[in-house]
């Protein structure tokens, strides 16, 4: 198996022709079956990068490869069986039940005029179980709390049974307990062999869950690699433009802001 799930080579991207380039000459490798955190301040092109990996956006120059092949080599259906997405602000404008919403994750396996069947129902219920939210199945999505909502989004993408998960700020807006719960679930999924790419603006979230780190700022990759080479006070201070310490406590790495800075 290819150890690179996703590879970007010299990718540049602008939303409008002649507009400002959101990404400039970005090259990176996403290792398979690990969690990669794309870390950077707000508004630096993290979401754009995810959308390029998904194939929703096409690079202005350079190329993106999924398991060594271009997006064009896969059909829409094949691609959606390989890679799933949870956007930062998932909106569900109609009041589906949790189970109805999760069943939407089965669409890559259905024909154009087909509704989900028994097997899809079973897979969706398994997804609910693995997120620990079986009790929510019949609940309308409008009645969920923020933490429940994010678990439901993850269950939807799990029902999609993909090898790669793209998660845009999966823990933003969650309290510590829910952050912890989601991150532990993600670590468990990576152990089962799923490749996870998550974006976050919070270094501690990245450190908690990820093995591979990509620091992005102003549309460029600053640093890329494992914890010790990337998460250093110098790197983070340069990127976030505030003095930052990296501390070690009980074997856990933590990032703290320098109050006297």
């Amino acid at each position: 198996m290819d150890h690179k799930a996703i590879a970007a080579k010299d990718v540049s991207f602008a939303y409008h022709q002649d507009g400002i380039r959101v990404l400039r000459d970005v090259s990176l490798d996403i290792p398979a079956q690990k969690i990669t955190a794309i870390l950077g301040p707000n508004g630096t092109g993290k979401t754009t990068l995810l959308h390029l990996m998904l194939g929703l956006l096409k690079p202005g120059s350079g190329e993106v490869l999924i398991f060594g092949k271009h997006h064009g080599a896969y059909s829409r259906r094949e691609m959606s069986q390989i890679m799933g997405l949870v956007p930062q602000f998932e909106s569900i404008p109609f009041n589906f039940t949790v189970l109805e919403y999760i069943l939407l994750g089965r669409s890559p396996y259905l024909k154009p005029f087909q509704s989900p069947g028994k097997e899809d129902l079973q897979i969706s219920e398994e997804a609910l179980t693995s997120m620990g939210i079986v009790g929510l199945a019949g609940k309308p999505v409008s009645e969920l709390s923020g933490g429940e909502r994010q678990l439901v989004h993850l269950a939807r993408v799990l029902a999609q049974r993909t090898k790669i998960l793209l998660l845009d700020e999966p823990t933003a807006h969650l309290d510590l307990e829910n952050q912890n719960r989601i991150l532990n679930l993600l670590v468990g999924l990576a152990e089962q062999g799923i490749t996870i790419v998550l974006t976050t603006h919070d270094p501690n979230v990245a450190i908690y869950a990820a093995e591979n780190f990509v620091l992005v700022n102003e549309g460029r990759i600053f640093f890329e690699g494992d914890l010790d080479t990337v998460i250093t006070p110098e790197n983070l201070s340069t990127m976030y433009n505030v003095p930052i310490h990296v501390e070690n406590a009980d074997g856990h790495t933590m990032v703290v802001m320098d109050k006297n800075g």
Partner: peptide
């Protein structure tokens, strides 16, 4: 049933193969 899918955000519907 596809109409459900199309009621989601474009990027979600796209990621689900629509």
């Amino acid at each position: 049933w596809r109409v459900n899918l199309l009621s989601l955000k474009d990027e979600t519907a796209f990621s689900l193969g629509a």
